[in-house]
Design a binder for these strands. Structure first.
Lengths: 192, 192
DNA sequence: ATTTTATATCAACAATTGTTTATATTTACA
DNA sequence: TGTAAATATAAACAATTGTTGATATAAAAT
């Protein structure tokens, strides 16, 4: 009958509050208030405030990496791989907009050694993307371009996606059409 | 002889510290320490901590709007206008990376009524961009596309630019070549 | 030379913060 | 039924924070 545990409820409340106010601005008392109990009770569910951030950041990072790894390991040509990476991003952003928001906005608040560990995961993801683009350039699927800049541009261009789903206003956005539009832009640009 | 005032020095130190640690994590004592004087002396230079944030955010926002307005008011075709907007972004990011970092990362820390005021400026800028793209679609310079999504993608894709200049490591990045690469991607995409 | 102005320190404040300890109550299970 | 686990509160802590007031000195302007 019970579909979520109390700990999951607590983490979810934390996630939403952090998304609304930011990690530093969200106090343990804020979270406890939303849960309807005293601050001290929060520590029956997590070890520390930092742990909340770490939990979501590394879990969602793992999700992105898993998708990326499967795509890279496939035998699809580079353009199809890129399309699938974009597709995967849209799926995660649509399903877990608050988690993605955390990844975009709050990773700076990690403390050592988790901070360095997270940066390393970020860099690794970026390198995988560079590798994908390089493969595409070598196989003449992509044009000859600076793959580092292209990676930064492409990754950045899909970073806003979570906002489309976190702000309920635009939540009716059709993921299929969204993907079509973004892939169209990344593949062929804006010119006719 | 004196090229900067003490107040300008103070604001610059604040800016760099906020960029390093984040606005909330930067204390008035941090800034005073870097300036080499007591906290209380800081209040001879600014009214409050919030004022530091507001100062940079609205000043730099103004800079972006001014550039955008000039470009929109010109008689260039839409593609040339878009190229100039991208060019303007690169110029500002190269010249004031820390200010741009603040715009990207710290606007959430504004308090009412400045928060709402700032959001309004952001939305206005986005609407100007939508208008530019719409103009391009109508004049058949740009392909038929969802201009809202395209705006989000393009604006997001140039938001990372400041990192290339804030982190000294990549500071040797040639702005001319950077612009060429980004315009190439935005105009024609990655495909051959 | 005298008066502003700019620049600085010291001490203290009230509020907020993450966290702990001790303890109570409720729920689930053997 | 009894016992262990889960869930809760109350009270307090030490540290940090933005900010103020009183006061002193150095520099600039009159």
């Amino acid at each position: 009958m019970k579909v979520t545990t109390k700990k999951e409820d607590f983490l979810q409340a934390s996630l939403e509050l952090i998304h609304e106010k930011g990690f530093k601005a969200t106090t343990m008392r804020d979270i406890a208030d939303r849960m309807g109990f005293d601050v001290s009770n929060s520590y029956n569910y997590i070890k520390s405030k930092q742990d909340i951030l770490e939990f979501f950041l590394f879990r969602t990072s793992e999700e992105f990496h898993a998708a990326m790894n499967d795509i890279l390991a496939s035998s699809y040509p580079a353009d199809e791989k890129l399309k699938q990476v974009i597709s995967a991003h849209i799926k995660v952003a649509a399903k877990k907009p608050f988690e993605v928001a955390l990844m975009v906005n709050e990773w700076r608040n990690l403390k050592e050694p988790k901070y360095t560990e997270y940066i390393r995961l970020r860099d690794l993801y970026e390198r995988k993307m560079i590798q994908l683009l390089q493969e595409g350039v070598q196989t003449k699927v992509f044009k000859d371009m600076d793959v580092h800049i292209a990676t930064a541009v492409i990754l950045s261009s899909i970073r806003w996606l979570y906002t489309a789903y976190a702000d309920k206003s635009e939540a009716e956005l059709n993921p299929i059409e969204l993907e079509r539009q973004i892939v169209g832009l990344v593949f062929n640009g804006v010119l006719v």
